[in-house]
Simulated scan of single mutants.
Amino acid sequence: MRLILMGPPGAGKGTQAKVVAEHFGVPAISTGDIFRANVAGRTELGQEAQRYMDAGEYVPDEITNAMVRDRVNLPDAEPGFLLDGYPRTLAQVDELDDMLAELGTKLDAAVSLAADQDELVKRLLKRAEVEGRTDDTEEVIRRRQEVYNEQTAPLIKVYDERGLLVEVDGIGEVDTVTQRIFDALETQD
């Protein structure tokens, strides 16, 4: 199973990615987790990524693409993977298409979690308080929502036109949303 999990910041992608990937026995590949690990490790990439993340902007494609290419080529991703937070731009869609072609495979589905923007802001502010996340101020959260709408939302149209889009209501209890994802994937086949 090769999936993309899309949705605005705070829609629950990270939570759902872990559960769905485990269900299918594939790794959940999260660019956010990779960026945070690099930031915590104070790597050169991490420091560069931190500047963009602190401003609520996306890390440039060339850094992200190289990182994802390396990750999907690891042995544990051979039977499949779930991408959380990638692709985020139309250019990254093209890059992912190239990666998949090189691997001789294709995507099975693109799952889009839909959620109300004000609900997401509340979620992220609460998470910032609980987890002490410095990148989750209300101003930065709202900017990340704008960036998502400008750059990532057009991907929904691309994957819909390819017949790969599965839209799921992302608001509700974790188990409820997970079941919605599995139900939607079953009807998509």
Rank of each mutant, 00 (worst) to 15 (best):
Arg2Phe: 11
Leu3Met: 07
Ile4Ala: 00
Met6Gly: 06
Met6Ile: 14
Gly7Thr: 09
Gly7Asp: 09
Pro9Val: 11
Gly12Thr: 10
Gly12Met: 10
Gly12Cys: 12
Gln16Asn: 10
Lys18Gln: 13
Val20Lys: 00
Val20Asn: 00
Ala21Ile: 11
Glu22Met: 07
Glu22Cys: 05
His23Lys: 14
Phe24His: 06
Gly25Tyr: 14
Val26Thr: 05
Val26Trp: 05
Val26Pro: 03
Pro27Cys: 10
Ser30Gln: 07
Ser30Leu: 14
Ser30Arg: 08
Asp33Ser: 05
Arg36Val: 08
Arg36Ile: 11
Asn38Arg: 06
Val39Thr: 06
Gly41Arg: 15
Gly41Tyr: 09
Arg42Val: 08
Arg42Gly: 08
Thr43Gln: 09
Gly46Ile: 15
Gly46Ser: 12
Gly46Asn: 08
Gln47Val: 12
Gln50Glu: 15
Arg51Leu: 13
Arg51His: 12
Tyr52Ile: 10
Tyr58Trp: 14
Val59Ser: 03
Val59Phe: 06
Asp61Glu: 13
Asp61Gln: 04
Glu62Ile: 12
Thr64Cys: 03
Arg69Ser: 06
Arg69Tyr: 14
Arg69Trp: 09
Arg71Ile: 09
Val72Ile: 15
Asn73Leu: 13
Asn73Lys: 14
Asp76Phe: 11
Ala77Pro: 02
Ala77Ile: 13
Ala77Phe: 10
Phe81Ala: 01
Leu82Glu: 02
Leu83Trp: 08
Asp84Glu: 08
Gly85Glu: 09
Gly85Val: 10
Gly85Asn: 07
Tyr86Thr: 01
Tyr86Met: 02
Tyr86Val: 06
Pro87Gly: 04
Pro87Asn: 10
Arg88Asp: 08
Arg88Phe: 05
Arg88Ser: 04
Thr89Trp: 06
Ala91Met: 10
Val93Thr: 12
Asp94Glu: 15
Leu100Thr: 02
Leu100Ile: 12
Ala101Asp: 15
Glu102Trp: 10
Leu103Tyr: 04
Leu103Thr: 02
Leu103Phe: 03
Gly104Arg: 10
Gly104Asn: 11
Thr105His: 09
Leu107Lys: 01
Ala114Tyr: 03
Ala114Gln: 13
Ala115Pro: 07
Glu119Phe: 14
Glu119Asp: 14
Glu119Pro: 00
Glu119Gly: 00
Arg123Gln: 08
Leu124Asn: 02
Lys126Asp: 14
Lys126Ala: 14
Arg127Leu: 11
Gly132Cys: 12
Arg133Thr: 05
Arg133Glu: 05
Arg133Gly: 02
Arg133Lys: 11
Thr134Cys: 01
Asp135Gly: 08
Asp136Asn: 07
Thr137Asp: 05
Ile141Pro: 01
Ile141Leu: 05
Arg142Asn: 06
Arg143Ser: 04
Arg143Gln: 13
Arg144His: 07
Glu146Trp: 07
Glu146Asp: 14
Val147Tyr: 07
Asn149Gly: 15
Pro154Ser: 08
Pro154Arg: 01
Pro154Asp: 14
Ile156His: 02
Ile156Gln: 04
Lys157Trp: 09
Val158Asn: 01
Val158Leu: 07
Arg162Asn: 07
Gly163His: 11
Gly163Glu: 13
Leu165Ala: 04
Val166Trp: 03
Asp169Tyr: 12
Gly170Ser: 05
Gly170Lys: 04
Ile171Leu: 10
Glu173His: 11
Val174Lys: 14
Thr176Gln: 15
Val177Phe: 03
Val177Lys: 00
Thr178Ser: 05
Thr178Gln: 13
Ile181Glu: 00
Phe182His: 09
Asp183Glu: 15
Asp183His: 06
Leu185Pro: 02
Leu185Thr: 06
Thr187Ser: 15
Gln188Glu: 12
Asp189Val: 14
